[in-house]
Design a protein around this nucleic acid. Sequence first.
DNA 1: CAGTAACCACACCGGTCGGTATACTGTCAG
DNA 2: CTGACAGTATACCGACCGGTGTGGTTACTG
Lengths: 201, 201
Amino acid sequence: MRLIVDREVAAAPRLTPAGERILTAASTLFYEQGIRTVGVDSIAAAADVTKKTLYDRFGSKDRLIAAYLGRRNREWHLFLDEQLAARRPSTPEDVILALFAALTDWLAGSRNGCGFINASVELAAPDHPAMPVIVGQKRWLRAEFEAQARLAGLADPGELADRLLLLHEGALVSYRVAAMTDAPEVATRAAADILKTWPRG
Amino acid sequence: MRLIVDREVAAAPRLTPAGERILTAASTLFYEQGIRTVGVDSIAAAADVTKKTLYDRFGSKDRLIAAYLGRRNREWHLFLDEQLAARRPSTPEDVILALFAALTDWLAGSRNGCGFINASVELAAPDHPAMPVIVGQKRWLRAEFEAQARLAGLADPGELADRLLLLHEGALVSYRVAAMTDAPEVATRAAADILKTWPRG
DNA sequence: CAGTAACCACACCGGTCGGTATACTGTCAG
DNA sequence: CTGACAGTATACCGACCGGTGTGGTTACTG
C-alpha cells in the first residue's frame, strides 16, 4: 500500500552554494521565529552572505518565503514516504493511520506546529505568491484521505476525508496554541475509532 | 442545561470615549488585517484620535493587543450565552453540540477564522502579555467539554474532551487555511457521531 | 583569452515602525 | 478658583524595514 494522489510538487530548483545556505538559514529562522519577525538582514547574516547575494538569488523576500514553503513541502512529502516505507501499511485504512502517526515525529523537537498554517496566518494576503503552496498542501492531504477511503470501499469518502482533515489540522494547531503535547496521539486514536465504525459503501 | 466551568474572564475595564473608539477600531483592524500588519498610526487615524491619546490610554501596542483579545474573549462568551439561551439544550451532550453549532454563526461574515489562533501565531513570543488570554480561551473550552462529558456520565471525559477540542480547532483552522467553508457543519456532525457511540462510564 | 556567473564589501535609499515631547484647550469636581 | 483629567495638534526620535547601486575578486568555461 502506498500513497495515491499525485504530489504535484515542483522539482527542487538548482541552487548555488550561497543560495543553498540562504534557503537553509531562512527555513530555520522563518519556522523558528516567524516570517514577519525575521528580516532579510538577519537571514543574510546567518547564511554568511551579503544582502546583495540574497537578492541576486531570490529577488525579493516574498519569493524567498515561497521558496521556503516549497522546500518544506518537498521535505514533508519525503518524510511521509519514509514513514510509509517504515510502517508498511497493508490496508488503505492503515495508510491513513500512518499519515496520522507521522505527525508525532514530524512535530517532535519544536513547539511551533505547522509551518504552513503559521505562514498562512502571517502572510494573510490571499494573493501572496506562497499561498498556492499552502492551500495545495492541505488539499493534497484531503484528496489522499478521500482516495484511500474510496480504495477501502468506505461510504461517503468525501465526508470522511473532511472529518479526518479536521482532526489532522486540529492536532497541528492544538499542539501549538493549546500546548497539547500529545495532540498527535489523540488524533491518531480518534482517526482509528472513526475508521473502525465507519460504514462500508 | 447551561455552561459549567467558570469563565475567569476579567471584567471589562472602564474606558473613556476616545479609549472606546480606539479599542473598537483596533479590534476590527487587528482581526481583519492581522496584528503585525496594522500600525498604531492607522489605528489612531481610524479611531479619529491622536497617537498621544492612544498611548495615554493603553501604554503600548502590546497592551492594546492584550486589550483587544480580552474584549474578543468576553464577546465570545457573551455570544455563547446567547446561543445556549436560544437553543435550550436539554442534555449535556446537547450543550456540547450547541458549542459546535455556534461555530457556524461565529465564523460567518469573514474568512479570517479564529482571532486567538491567529494572534498566537502572529505574536509567537510565549511571554507576550496577551498569551494567557489565548491559552486560557482554549483551556476553558476543553474544561467545559470535559465537565459536560462527566455530567453526562460518559467514560474517560478527558480523552473525549481532547478529541472534541481537536475537531473544534480543526474546524477553525480548516475554515481559514484550507478554505473549507462548511468546516463548522462537518465538525458538528463529527462531534455528534462521537458522542453517539462513546461508551458510558 | 574573453566572457560570465557567483560571489564579496560597503554604502545608501525612502519609508514605516513603535514611541515620545511640547504646548494648548475644554470640562468638571473639590 | 484650581487642579486633575481627557483630549487636541504637530513635530520629532532612533531603529529597522525591504531593497538598490557601485565596484571589485575569484573561478570556471567556450
